[in-house]
């Protein structure tokens, strides 16, 4: 049994918000650098260099990598042996507000989607998973809405071919065009239910960007990079830095596929208590 005070969680979340928004993930930066080195298109190369310079300035001067500091998505993996003293949800929301204030980030959250009203810091989408063990893992993913707006889900027939699935995912990226700040990281969720596939697509984005040798991943990466959208939509090879896929058991009658695109400023930070 491990006892964690809510105040501690607030402090950790606050620090994660600042880190995620100001320090670009190393695996993302590595992919951008590799894209820069291999890019032949002059304009695309210049755009990639601007992205690298931007990350350096942001880290050095503690500025947000992007002004859209997003709607923070918080993943919590809570061990069964953890006992929280206090209100967990409130502690997370407080941590978000504190971190965003400290970082001088943007007040991008409205309390009601239809009434809108004055925007503020106090909001997050929190997903909690109960796992075995005695630790609490928190991941903050500040997701900008330029790319979040391009998310899509499709309920395929269970007999759909992998070709049809690939075509759909590539089409989603094609329809995002240059709007969502390419080069992208494409999160894909396959299986579960409509809502769960969407969650998996989002969750795929917090996974490390490695080069998987899965046929589906390499086919998608190739297909997307053949779209010739390129950095800032200026053409070139780098439309997509990585495709991350998560899958889950599903029903014999269905095959949900969700796509969640991230801009090149894929930001997330984790801590384990």
């Amino acid at each position: 049994m491990k006892v964690i005070k809510a105040e501690k969680i607030t402090k950790v979340v606050s620090d994660l918000c600042v880190k995620a928004n100001c320090v670009l993930r190393k695996d993302v930066l590595r992919k951008i650098r590799a894209a820069y080195l291999s890019e032949k298109n002059k304009k695309a190369k210049a755009a990639l260099l601007a992205i690298i310079n931007n990350a350096q300035i942001a880290q050095k001067e503690k500025l947000a990598i992007c002004q859209d500091t997003g709607l923070p998505f918080v993943f919590i993996e809570m061990g069964q042996g953890v006992k929280i003293i206090g209100n967990l949800k409130q502690a997370v929301i407080r941590g978000i507000a504190q971190g965003y204030k400290k970082g001088n980030f943007r007040e991008s959250i409205v309390s009601h989607p239809l009434k809108r009203g004055k925007s503020h810091y106090s909001g997050a989408v929190i997903n909690t998973d109960i796992v075995t063990g005695n630790s609490l893992k928190i991941t903050v993913l500040p997701k900008g809405f330029g790319c979040e707006n391009k998310s899509q889900i499709k309920m395929f027939n269970p007999t759909a071919s992998s070709g049809e699935i690939k075509k759909f995912i590539i089409e989603v990226v094609k329809s995002a065009g240059a709007d969502a700040c390419p080069p992208y990281v494409v999160g894909v969720g396959i299986g579960g239910t409509a809502d769960y596939a969407s969650l998996l697509a989002k969750k795929a984005l917090i996974n490390k960007l490695t080069t998987y040798n899965l046929r589906l991943t390499t086919d998608l990466l190739k297909g997307i990079n053949n779209l010739n959208i390129g950095p800032m939509g200026l053409g070139g090879k780098a439309t997509c830095l990585a495709v991350n896929i998560e899958h889950y058991p599903t029903h014999i009658a269905g095959l949900p596929v969700a796509v969640n695109i991230s801009c090149h400023a894929l930001r997330s930070a984790s801590a384990k208590l």
Partner: peptide, 11 residues
């Protein structure tokens, strides 16, 4: 077009 996703640089 401005350099997209480069808000720190643009500042």
């Amino acid at each position: 077009l401005a350099p997209a996703g480069c808000g720190a640089l643009i500042s």
